[in-house]
Simulated scan of single mutants.
Amino acid sequence: MKKILVVETNQTSYGQRAEATGLWLGETTEFVLAVQAVGYQVDYVSPKGGYVPLDPRSMKYADAASLALYRQPAFQRAALAQTLPPAAVRPQDYIAIYYAGGHGVMWDFPADAGLRQLAEVIYQQGGYVTAVCHGIAGLLNLRRPNGEYLLVNRQVTGFTTGEEVLAGKRWQVPFLNQVEVTRRGGHFVKRRPYATFAVQDGRLITGQNPFSAQAVATKLIAALAEEK
């Protein structure tokens, strides 16, 4: 059985601001718990490899299962302390790639050539490209072999402009994912703020906000099961 590659951020702050950010813990843990429960193995990669910071706000929203996983030394080592750099990853080993969010990804996901190459190869070999919340930032610059953006004419979702306003981060982020998806020819779809929502368009699966990680996993598990 091929594995699933989980992508996380190395960004510790909102650009040059002093305010801390990083990975939203539940966006990794809830997805990982779901796919591991049906037998899939996961590996963790980040743009620089190594340390992954946690958004401190995410801890108060983590459920009991997420906190139990977080406390496991093996998870802390693989997912938070010693993530793989893109150059150490063989895309042929993976059936899917999953971009976890947190505001930090807005700074280090979109322009990272190593992550982009991994995702493009996984997709071209028949794998799935998936993301939740701000993680969709990692999909913005993915391209098909013909040079066209992967998002062109695809239904996708992610953290909405309205949710950014409600979170109080509208003027702290370098761009708005909803706007950038539309600029790249994608069809951005959404539900009410902070409602659980995920959408699948072929081998592209995306979730709207932090409460949608398990929904993304559920759709991915179902899609992979249909291929067996």
Rank of each mutant, 00 (worst) to 15 (best):
M1L: 08
K2G: 00
K3C: 02
V6K: 05
V6R: 06
V6S: 02
V7R: 09
V7I: 13
V7H: 07
T9L: 08
Q11N: 14
S13R: 12
Y14I: 14
Q16V: 10
R17G: 04
A18D: 14
A18N: 11
A20V: 08
A20F: 02
T21G: 04
L25M: 10
L25Q: 04
F31D: 01
V32F: 01
L33W: 05
Q36L: 01
Q36D: 07
V38W: 03
V38I: 10
G39R: 05
G39N: 06
Y40A: 00
Y40I: 02
Q41D: 11
D43Q: 06
Y44P: 02
V45P: 00
L54Q: 10
A65P: 04
S66I: 09
F75N: 06
A81Y: 05
Q82K: 15
Q82V: 06
T83V: 03
P85A: 15
V89N: 00
R90T: 03
D93Y: 09
Y94W: 12
I95E: 03
Y98V: 04
Y99Q: 09
Y99M: 12
A100S: 15
A100H: 05
G101Q: 03
G102L: 03
G102H: 05
H103R: 05
H103A: 08
G104R: 07
V105Y: 03
V105I: 14
Q117A: 14
A119N: 06
A119W: 01
V121E: 06
Q124W: 04
Q125H: 12
G127T: 00
G127H: 00
G127C: 01
Y128W: 13
T130A: 15
V132L: 09
V132I: 12
V132D: 01
H134V: 06
I136D: 01
A137M: 10
L139Q: 09
N141I: 02
N146Y: 04
E148P: 02
Y149T: 13
L150Q: 02
V152G: 06
Q155L: 14
V156T: 07
F159N: 03
F159K: 10
T160W: 04
T160A: 03
T160F: 02
E164N: 11
E164M: 11
V165A: 14
G168N: 09
G168E: 07
R170A: 15
R170Q: 14
W171G: 13
Q172A: 13
V173W: 03
N177Y: 01
N177D: 11
Q178W: 05
V179N: 12
T182A: 14
R183L: 09
G185W: 02
G185S: 05
F188Q: 08
R191P: 00
P193H: 03
A195T: 14
T196I: 08
F197R: 06
V199G: 00
R203I: 00
I205E: 00
N209D: 10
P210C: 10
F211G: 13
A213H: 05
Q214K: 15
I221F: 06
E226H: 14
E226T: 11
E227V: 04
